[in-house]
Write a protein that binds this DNA or RNA. Structure first.
Lengths: 231, 231
DNA sequence: TTAATAAATTGATTTGAATCAGTCTTTTTT
DNA sequence: AAAAAAGACTGATTCAAATCAATTTATTAA
């Protein structure tokens, strides 16, 4: 028998970046003095795997994917919605190159904070350090789940998963506009573009969702949940 | 074109747990006063996903797998050789249940340290906190690589990968005794038992490795590396 | 020592999903 | 507005690897 409710969770979930709450007003000033806001256009590269990490990034507004790429295949590790951090895993001084690339899905605004300042505050402020540890831990959990789903679920389960994640966590509504191409959605869901298209069509036929242009509406949440669980 | 040398690395790599070097003698005393050594027999469960985390564990001697399980499928996230930590990802106070299970591959001895003490030291000792962050980061990187390999490499690439990992990182020798059943090896390599057996046989026929009972010898390192890279 | 059980192996079959190939549609460029 | 390019879609085919089925070998229990 299979424990349902395990690994049915969101595989692209966000963390709650409340670590900045723990900063003193002086530390906030320090950060503000050492950060810049940068705007990225849709499809612009935010960081490249292998590149030196000089900044911790905070998504002020937008949506981006974090992914691995070997020139042939792409694996989307997670997506970064508004309010999330990017580059935290590279905060370690030894490990100071990006382990992944990131690309803006839509026009985005990102605050870039000098990573040396962040490292300094980690040393000074143990509450902040603790929160960083918490965020890293919850990132791990999210990746573990996604890893499990990608390796053990069939395509319909993976797609149900992603639709629920988007609805529950990223957009927090049953109707949302997804500004991704079919290729991008396939990549995010871990399947080929053609398979994604066929499955989306099937989901619409089965009355699970409806699609109007770029807008997806979840029609039968419970059945989607069930499909996600059954894999 | 494909960037070789990416994601060819060890997918079951260990981290270097040197965080204890940063402790004061008083902190070491504190840890010793709040820890116990426990011996596990082969195949005994060390922790279960969902269980409360009360201890950080240090593998004094042995070998264990860390895995996710839904009652039907298993995914080995990493293996824990001598000198490695177990349970660090659950150090977060919010996230205080195990996100994975662990099982001893062989008879093992594990030091269990009261997690409250570790949390306290993280708050006190920023160098230690920094090292914990480093370990968590490098864990992430390792999981990212394994995730990529599992989703985009073919079985022969995954197997070459695991053999190289075992040889390079876990045992640091080209000849090692692997005390795993075929089923366990398949699980570790991310394939069915039958596929693993066929591939092992093929690797032996092709002169890449030789197998003598439980002992595996790497005969052609370069070719294995190549297979691992080509996927 | 034998019976029972578990693990390893081999071959045949099935299958999920990728790939290939081509058409239709929409968007962008000229 | 027409041409070009990119994206969406559909059907046919292929393929890697799982599953199924059966046998052999090794371990454990009686």
């Amino acid at each position: 028998m299979r424990n349902t409710n395990l690994y049915t969770g969101c595989t692209i979930g966000q963390h709650v970046s409340n670590c900045f709450d723990k900063l003193t007003s002086e530390e906030i000033k320090l950060i503000d003095a050492n950060s810049v806001n940068i705007k990225y256009k849709k499809h612009e590269i935010i960081c490249k795997q292998g590149g030196l990490v000089t900044q911790l990034m905070f998504m002020k507004k937008g949506l981006a994917k974090v992914y691995l790429d070997d020139g042939v295949n792409t694996l989307v590790l997670k997506i970064i919605p508004t309010g999330n951090l990017l580059g935290l895993a590279s905060i370690s001084e030894e490990n100071n190159v990006f382990q992944y690339s990131a690309m803006a899905y839509i026009d985005s605004e990102i605050k870039q904070i000098d990573i040396q300042i962040i490292r300094q505050i980690i040393r000074q402020n143990s509450e902040f350090a603790k929160d960083v540890i918490d965020i890293l831990s919850s990132n791990s959990v999210q990746i573990y789940n996604r890893f499990f789903c990608f390796t053990h679920k069939q395509c319909f389960g993976k797609l149900a998963d992603i639709i629920l994640c988007l609805s529950d966590r990223i957009f927090s509504t049953t109707q949302f506009e997804l500004p991704l191409s079919r290729r991008e959605m396939g990549e995010l869901s871990g399947m080929s573009t053609e398979t994604l298209i066929r499955l989306l069509k099937k989901f619409v036929e089965d009355g699970l969702i409806s699609i109007e242009g770029k807008t997806i509406t979840v029609l039968d949440y419970e059945r989607l949940k069930n499909i996600s669980e059954k894999g």
